[in-house]
Amino acid sequence: MEQNVKYYVVKDKAVPEVLIKVVEAKRLLTADKIMTVKEATDKCGISRSSFYKYKDDIFPFDDSSKGRNITLSIQISDEPGLLSELLAVVAKYHANILTIHQTIPVSGVATISLSIEILKDTGDLSKMVDEIGSLEGIFDIKILARE
């Protein structure tokens, strides 16, 4: 019987420490082909059973996104040049913009739906989203979909 699989995108502060350590152990194993699972888990301070239990279910968001599309919803202040700054961040990370839709601003705030293709040379997606969210005049940013 096939189970319905659901995926969630959460910020790292909401992820239990053991899962973060599993991701780190996987990174160590990828970086050092000679390292054993026992060595990687010892270095990260987790048990091998925890590693094997979660290794196929946790991964950094950007690792699985290459060649895929994401859609962001962004609440943005209606200020000249702010959309240009936002798009410059996307360009800086070498992502390809597929669509942009902006609502008419209400009370000085517009909603932008931005669909982005993640390419092979796209930088760290998490950092890109954080950098967009830290721009002056960005009120909220959410990842709506990942295809």
Rank of each mutant, 00 (worst) to 15 (best):
K66F: 00
I112H: 13
A14K: 08
Q75M: 14
K11D: 13
V23A: 04
F59R: 15
G81I: 03
I97P: 00
F59L: 11
D12P: 12
A31Q: 15
V90I: 03
R146D: 15
R27Y: 14
D130S: 11
G81K: 02
Y52S: 03
N4G: 12
S77A: 15
V89L: 07
F59Q: 08
F59H: 14
D121I: 04
N69C: 10
D124W: 09
N96K: 01
H101E: 11
F61S: 11
L119C: 01
G108K: 00
K38F: 05
T103A: 09
T41A: 03
D62A: 08
H94I: 07
Y52H: 03
G67Q: 00
K6A: 09
S84K: 11
T103F: 03
Y52F: 06
A145H: 10
Y54D: 11
Q3E: 15
E39C: 07
V109L: 01
R48P: 03
K55F: 09
I46N: 02
T30K: 13
S77H: 09
D62Y: 04
G123P: 01
I132H: 06
K127N: 12
E39V: 11
V37E: 05
V15L: 00
I76S: 05
K55T: 05
Y93H: 07
R146C: 14
I132W: 05
S134Q: 09
P105A: 06
L86M: 10
E39L: 07
F59A: 07
D130V: 10
E147F: 15
D32F: 15
E117S: 02
I74T: 02
M1P: 13
R27I: 13
E136C: 09
Y7R: 12
S77C: 10
R68T: 09
L125T: 04
K26F: 01
R68G: 06
N69M: 10
V18R: 04
S107G: 12
S49D: 02
D78A: 11
R27T: 12
I76E: 07
E17L: 13
